[in-house]
Write a protein that binds this DNA or RNA. Structure first.
Lengths: 299, 299
DNA sequence: TTTTTGTCAATATAATTACTCGACAAGATA
DNA sequence: TATCTTGTCGAGTAATTATATTGACAAAAA
């Protein structure tokens, strides 16, 4: 029915400033003096930054923090900027995520939670996931793996994030009438963050989410799909071995009704062979599109 | 009143609508028709809701959802509203916990979460833990063990409860100045609910809680206590074997400074031998007393 | 010193949010 | 059935917040 043209999302100046950790004045100054970014403009003249503009600004900032001068790098393209930014020695936390990592190191739960929920409330669920939750979880994981972050800090981060995302998982009035979708991870797959973020995005996209969490046995998944009369089952695969994943998927596809879609996401799905009856969800935009299709069918 | 220097935080209409789950139109209609709430007004005339207005709206909504008519209850005061909301006239399930279990069986996440947060907001943290969360968790565990409740339902319950308790774990202004207490469970002890509820009670009692969650290595616990300069470390033991527990406790008591209290709680502590330097916390009242002592020493 | 760079102030405009009044329809009640 | 209650919506206007531009200034770097 409606034009399903995915209009690229854009952000106004203030949001962009928060997301990049740069002040609004500085954003304007960089644009005016060096044309460092060229955001779109509304008919009225206000700036609208696209995702590529945000990336550019983040790289510019990284390079400046690393010691470069803005006048020297403002004209570089994205690829060149990536190289310019690699020399990093950033002690002062200026982006929200840096600040959060800093409070994690100090085990300052109050500060960390405050910052998180502030971001969620100002950005809204979708932007929060894209720009805060996902990058933060990735960064925490990497630093923890490298031994730069204590287990305590990792627990603090995971726990706070899970609570916040979980409390945001309340279905809205709009999503209550939408198509049922069950979210979970299969057995032996303990990574919960990804599927939680997906579930949150799904709610915002208008689906009625049943979130079952990690490590759900296959029989239980099938029964749950039946109980809530779900139109789709969404699974996240991260650490599960390809063999185990194949087994789970085959069994699910075999025993689920054909009309129930089976969606797979997560960093581990690259290893999995695509086949009929399985849909790979590579990012949240794809997920939203799938749900939009279901919503249309529903109504 | 002539004073009004205290800058009590207020919320505009849109934020209030999101926080209460009521539409802006409805908020205005309730005010216009029944004077159900009387928010402050800016000089320009826009509404500014205080915390008490939010509470009132939440209770009104709860009562309406429970079957009351807005016209009948709009004039009641907060105390009467609490009563009106709790006494629901839902016929089938007799107690709120029965109703929650019923929605769990149907995997009705929306209904379950709604009921839970309603109880938390009407009862307050302490009574919620005592009268809802703890009995519910016990009941779910038992029914799951008996096979009367699916794993999916158990996951749903655990997830929702953990999110709700976790989001209630935000330190209050009062607790921020209080004595630091670290809450966690030792390695191989995965039961999280008990220690979470204890942490929630501790916040209400005025301590500054650092909640690290389950399965914390001993060395990390020691380091965390040092990092936040905690006055006590609270552990919960449920499924851990007495031998493992003894080992953990000995090591902790040996390596922790003497001035740091070590508190043990949970159903598994009965097996553990009492000794100097260890305090058994048998219930939440005891916990509150211990914290009250620390608060006195603090000031 | 001269240039670069971040910040700020003043003033105007744009975009968003909110206000009131009036109306209407679906459901509850008499 | 007739009436009342209750949630929602629209139109037109106002208040509030966010943003734009220009010009300037001081600290830091060259």
């Amino acid at each position: 029915m409606t034009e399903a043209v995915t209009t690229e999302p854009t952000y106004p100046l203030g949001i962009t400033a928060r997301l990049t950790g740069l002040s609004p004045e500085l954003l304007r100054a960089w644009e005016r003096r060096y044309a460092a970014v060229e955001p779109l403009r509304t008919p009225g003249g206000t700036r609208r930054y696209r995702a590529r503009d945000l990336e550019r600004l983040r790289l510019l900032k990284a390079a400046v923090v690393a010691g470069k001068r803005i006048g020297q790098i403002a004209h570089l393209d994205l690829e060149q900027l990536r190289h310019a930014a690699v020399v990093s020695d950033s002690p002062a936390p200026s982006s929200p995520i840096e600040a959060m990592l800093d409070s994690l190191v100090r085990l300052d739960a109050a500060e960390f939670q405050r910052a998180l929920s502030l971001q969620l409330s100002t950005l809204g669920p979708r932007r929060f996931v894209d720009h805060i939750a996902a990058p933060l979880a990735r960064e925490v994981g990497e630093r923890w793996a490298r031994g730069e972050l204590s287990i305590a800090a990792e627990h603090l981060s995971t726990g706070a994030l899970r609570s916040l995302l979980g409390s945001a998982l309340q279905p809205s009035s709009k999503s209550l009438g939408g198509p049922q979708v069950v979210f979970a991870t299969p057995p032996k797959e303990g990574h919960e963050m990804g599927i939680m973020m997906a579930a949150l995005a799904a709610i915002e996209a208008g689906s009625n989410v049943t979130y079952l969490g990690p490590n759900m046995p296959v029989e239980e998944l099938i029964q749950a799909v039946e109980t809530v009369d779900a139109a789709a089952l969404a699974l996240s695969i991260v650490t599960l071995s390809p063999d185990d994943a194949e087994h789970v998927i085959s069994q699910l596809r075999e025993e689920l009704p054909d009309k129930v879609a089976l969606w797979l996401g997560g960093s581990g799905v690259g290893e999995i062979e695509s086949r009929p009856g399985i849909e790979m969800i590579t990012d949240l935009d794809t997920l939203e599109q799938r749900i939009a299709l279901l919503v249309e069918q529903c109504s």
